[in-house]
């Protein structure tokens, strides 16, 4: 076919050029994966502003300062919970451990979300109820 004629008439330099261009284009796939962080992360926001983005694989407890004082966010075994809070009703502490979704302390304006930014395999995209 025409493609064969094309191949016959191209010089070795052309072929090198072609393959080089194809390799460069394809390497985009690899680099895109490398450049975009895919690890799930714990994101902590106060009043809508991010204050921490933490790795879920690192066990730790961080104090987060809100308008009423310190909310304590604990990360352990790839899960996260609010372990202490200055708020009155402690609903945030009662939420317990989660491995996906969000923990919220309304009075202290703290929002903790866990999960990937580009989530493909999350069991649910949102929860009603």
């Amino acid at each position: 076919m025409n493609l064969r004629i094309l191949l016959n008439t191209t010089t070795p330099a052309d072929k090198v050029l072609f393959s080089l261009l194809i390799i460069v284009s394809l390497s985009g796939y690899l680099f895109a994966d490398k450049l975009l962080p895919e690890n799930p992360s714990v994101r902590i926001e106060v009043n809508g502003k991010p204050v921490y983005i933490l790795r879920v694989t690192e066990n730790r407890t961080v104090p987060v300062k809100g308008p009423h004082g310190y909310t304590y966010v604990e990360i352990k075994d790839q899960r996260v919970r609010i372990s202490g809070s200055p708020c009155a009703n402690k609903l945030c502490v009662q939420q317990g451990w989660i491995s996906s979704g969000a923990l919220v302390c309304l009075p202290n304006r703290v929002v903790v979300t866990i999960g990937k930014q580009t989530e493909e395999n999350m069991p649910v995209d949102a929860i009603t109820g």
Partner: peptide, 8 residues
């Protein structure tokens, strides 16, 4: 989209 209904 996958929506979860919370366990009451």
């Amino acid at each position: 989209w996958n929506i979860g209904i919370r366990n009451p």
